[in-house]
């Protein structure tokens, strides 16, 4: 199999030269310098590596880079418009929904995927959609509050 020569990340074509079996996570982090997505477990069970591919939240540690070539990839670095944070980012800050912050980029991306697909989630919807993301510092309650606030903000056109 040939190396993967490019990825479409945050709306830009980025040149790569990556072994097809490498994880999307490692190519984003080590080749493209997009270190927002984190390694947490390598088994797809903590969600720290979450990015969006075709608008869906995926675990980039479990995705071979070959399988996402040519597809639109969004990472946490692509969310804010200049100084203006995405409503999910702003809501997490407002709610103080973090401690060490290592899980935060994955939380943000999972929440963005949820709200883009379900703009008016119930609390149960949020818990179900986010259950694959671990915050070892235990800020789950604040994260739920933040995602509810973000849903409201996005509905209000505060995009």
């Amino acid at each position: 199999m040939p190396n993967v020569k490019g990825l479409q990340v945050n709306g830009a074509d980025r040149a790569t030269d990556a072994h097809p079996d490498r994880s999307l996570l490692s190519v984003l982090r080590d080749d493209l310098g997009l270190t927002g997505a984190k390694y947490g477990c390598g088994e797809g069970r903590c969600g720290a590596c979450t990015v969006l591919v075709d608008g869906r939240a995926i675990r980039s540690c479990q995705s071979r880079v070959e399988t996402v070539a040519g597809k639109p990839i969004r990472t946490v670095e692509g969310l804010a418009a200049g100084e203006k944070l995405h409503p999910v980012q702003a809501a997490l800050l407002d709610a103080g929904a973090m401690q060490c912050g290592y899980c935060t980029p994955g939380m943000v991306m999972s929440a963005v995927a949820l709200l883009e697909q379900h703009p008016e989630p119930t609390r149960d919807d949020i818990v179900a959609a986010m259950n694959g993301n671990i915050c070892r510092c235990g800020t789950y309650g604040r994260l739920v509050v933040a995602i509810e606030a973000a849903a409201k903000a996005m509905k209000g056109g505060a995009k």
Partner: peptide, 23 residues
Amino acid sequence: TSAPKANGRDIVTGGHKYTSDVT
């Protein structure tokens, strides 16, 4: 007072560099 987290913005934007992000 409840001063917000000092580098919170870096955290939510993925900009903060943890050890594993250092190159």
